[in-house]
Design a binder for these strands. Sequence first.
DNA 1: GAGTGGTCTAGACCACTGT
DNA 2: CAGTGGTCTAGACCACTCC
Lengths: 271, 271
Amino acid sequence: MSERDWRPRYVQLAEELREKIQRGELPAGEPLPSEPELAEQTGISRTSVRNAIRQLREWGLVRAEQGRGTFVRRPKVRVKRSNVERYQWEKDRVHEPEEVRRQTGGTEHDTGLSVHDLKFHAKYQEMDAPSDLAHIFGVRSGTKLLQRTYWTSAKTEDAPLSMSRSYLVHEVVAKNPDLLSDRNEPWPGGTHHQLSTVGIEIDHITDHVVARPPSPDEADILRTESGDWVLVLRKISTSTEGKVVEVADAVYPADRTELVYNIGLKRWNQA
Amino acid sequence: MSERDWRPRYVQLAEELREKIQRGELPAGEPLPSEPELAEQTGISRTSVRNAIRQLREWGLVRAEQGRGTFVRRPKVRVKRSNVERYQWEKDRVHEPEEVRRQTGGTEHDTGLSVHDLKFHAKYQEMDAPSDLAHIFGVRSGTKLLQRTYWTSAKTEDAPLSMSRSYLVHEVVAKNPDLLSDRNEPWPGGTHHQLSTVGIEIDHITDHVVARPPSPDEADILRTESGDWVLVLRKISTSTEGKVVEVADAVYPADRTELVYNIGLKRWNQA
DNA sequence: GAGTGGTCTAGACCACTGT
DNA sequence: CAGTGGTCTAGACCACTCC
């Protein structure tokens, strides 16, 4: 006598399919049986079958494609971002000769893809500081900011995408008019070099990491599935004079991203 | 003549309710109209109303409670974890006198809650190293590990919860038998002090941050909503001798957590 | 017991994909 | 064109909460 299974039928079906997928019985890329087929096989209604499939989608195991079928997703390879090393690398790059700086940008360094795999987009806009940014910069709400939006689109499928917004105090960077136009992007040497042209050196950077559901435009650019989340990294850069000079928000698809931070500790015997 | 709205009706309803919530017309804590009520008001079926509400749940805006109603969630306050400072603090604490070490543990430091608000749980188990952990520790698969599971449950509502698993190589810590039993938890001075009793000093720590849907037991302990994700932090500690001595996985509710990393950069003029 | 959300059915039409 | 997933209806019964 086996015990009665009190779980809802759609949960039971979802679990069955999950096990089949994880045992490799339904390999990645393969379609599930169609919804009417599953309904007939299991003797439950199509609505409940759809409920089970919705569960599998929330678990990130399958992806439904309109008119084609529902397919087992291949496990996402997470792209590692080591920001401690990356930020130092970006800073060091400023004193390289221009032809070296031209060869790789931050994005290529992030993704490991070459310039040829990526399309780079940049857009500059002026805006009034909302209260949270004003507070971080230590300026009054409504102070003019330069907002720079960057996104990359990959030519190859399954490549990691990203989207970021950077904020600078307009008055600070306006000393060099070249910094105000997106026609100068991609700037060889990146933000560190841009800021160095107005006499700013960055002393330290603080990363703030949160995860949340994507906004509609983020979902669009990153091509996330329904139920996916994004990792949001707010990078706050402080100059050697102790002023916050840049705030940058980067948005990554959470299931394809791993952030790595290396932290050295003081030795006891050197205290 | 207004244009026809081609979006599905449940999406339209979801958007309408989202706007009402964000305009404050439906304040946090208030119930939505019941499902039959919404169905009647809008003239669509209850199934479609439920679809709209599912959308709002995925957006994290509402929470459904069986038998009571569907309520507007109050925006979650994120608990900040500054691991750079925290890890150094934990290391420094080892050389404090025992009565000081006894007063606060890592958990209290994390959450800002006092000992009285939290129930602390610890469980030790032996296990054979799975291949990923074996690879990190640099030992053979199947090597005996000590697995330590910690979780806190809060007495007050809405308090941040957490759950973590720590792994040590059994042979390494067995030199001090006190380290093998969970009856000695909470250990004054934490892992740094525990390891110091077998002659180990930690030199640096690497944090690996990913986000994913919770496993069923994680969802249970953290009381996450369906559709919520968790932040998983894998902390890898390396000794002054260059060996990985501890791997610890901490799981946090993603919508209540913010991780902060402070990164100092080398000065140009000191190069 | 009345009202809530959770599960479930047996249909229907639609938009999209492939051949 | 047939077959897929997406939307939608009009019912039904259940488990749970609160009075």
